[in-house]
Deep mutational scan, measured.
Amino acid sequence: ENVVSAPMPGKVLRVLVRVGDRVRVGQGLLVLEAMKMENEIPSPRDGVVKRILVKEGEIDDTGQPLIELG
């Protein structure tokens, strides 16, 4: 899985990584606010952040691509 998608609709509060960062499975990639709760979205695998497809403050839909890993 190279693309991390939104598991729920919500607002992107914080992006915790930058392009080029090495990430490990379970590491937080970004924080979504949904139903007044903050949810940290973890990396599904080890890899390198290739692209960040959303910006802080954006509203996303379920299934929307958020981050691409390489």
Rank of each mutant, 00 (worst) to 15 (best):
Q64W: 12
L13Y: 04
Q27P: 00
E56S: 09
Q27W: 05
L32A: 00
G20P: 01
G47Y: 03
G26V: 03
V15L: 13
K11E: 03
E1H: 14
R51W: 09
G70C: 15
G20R: 04
V25I: 12
V17Y: 00
D61C: 13
I41S: 01
P65C: 07
D21P: 00
P65N: 06
G20W: 05
K55V: 13
V19W: 03
E56K: 10
S43A: 11
E1K: 13
P44Y: 03
G63M: 08
T62F: 13
I41M: 04
G57Q: 07
L30G: 00
I67T: 02
E40T: 15
V17P: 00
V25Y: 11
M35P: 04
Q27F: 06
V3E: 05
G10R: 04
V4M: 04
G63E: 07
E33L: 15
G10K: 03
G28E: 03
V54M: 06
E33V: 12
M35D: 14
L69I: 12
R14L: 07
D60Q: 15
E56H: 09
E58Q: 12
M35C: 13
T62A: 14
G47M: 03
V19H: 04
S5Y: 15
L66C: 04
G10D: 01
G57M: 06
I59D: 09
R45L: 12
L29A: 00
D61H: 14
L69V: 08
I41W: 03
K11I: 11
G10N: 03
R51G: 07
E40Y: 12
N39Y: 15
G57C: 09
G28M: 11
E68P: 03
R22M: 11
G20I: 03
N2E: 11
G20T: 04
I59S: 09
E68V: 15
G57W: 06
P42D: 05
E58T: 10
G10E: 01
S5H: 14
P9M: 11
P65Y: 06
L66V: 05
M8C: 12
E38S: 09
K50Q: 09
D60R: 15
D21R: 02
G57H: 05
A34M: 13
K36P: 04
V3F: 14
P44A: 03
P42G: 10
A6V: 05
M8E: 05
P42N: 10
K11Y: 09
V49H: 01
L16E: 02
G10P: 02
S5I: 14
V4Q: 03
T62H: 10
L69P: 00
K50S: 09
V12N: 00
G26A: 04
E68C: 11
R51P: 03
V19N: 04
L53Q: 03
G26I: 04
Q64V: 11
V4E: 02
L69F: 09
L13N: 04
K55A: 12
L66A: 01
V19F: 04
Q27H: 05
K11V: 10
A34D: 08
N39L: 15
E1C: 15
G10V: 06
G10W: 04
P65F: 07
G28P: 15
V31C: 05
K55L: 11
K55M: 12
P7A: 08
P7G: 09
M35R: 10
R22P: 09
Q27Y: 04
L30P: 00
M37V: 13
V48R: 07
P65T: 07
D21G: 04
E56T: 09
G57V: 05
V15Y: 08
L32T: 03
P9A: 13
I59C: 13
A34Q: 10
K11F: 08
K55S: 12
K50D: 06
Q64F: 10
L66Y: 03
I52A: 02
V54K: 05
G26W: 05
M35F: 13
V23Y: 02
R22Y: 13
E33S: 09
P65S: 07
E58N: 10
V25T: 12
G63Y: 07
K55Q: 12
R14Y: 07
L29R: 00
I67L: 10
A6S: 11
G70S: 13
K11C: 08
S43R: 02
T62D: 07
E68N: 04
I41H: 01
K55N: 10
D21A: 06
K50I: 14
R22S: 12
P9K: 13
D21I: 08
P9C: 12
M8T: 08
Q64L: 08
V12G: 00
V12H: 00
M8Y: 15
G26S: 03
G10C: 11
P42L: 14
V49R: 01
G20D: 04
E58A: 09
V17H: 00
L66R: 01
I67K: 02
G57E: 06
Q27A: 04
E40W: 12
M35L: 11
I67F: 08
I41F: 03
E33Q: 11
R14F: 06
E38M: 10
D61V: 14
S5L: 15
L69W: 04
D61Q: 14
V23W: 04
P42I: 13
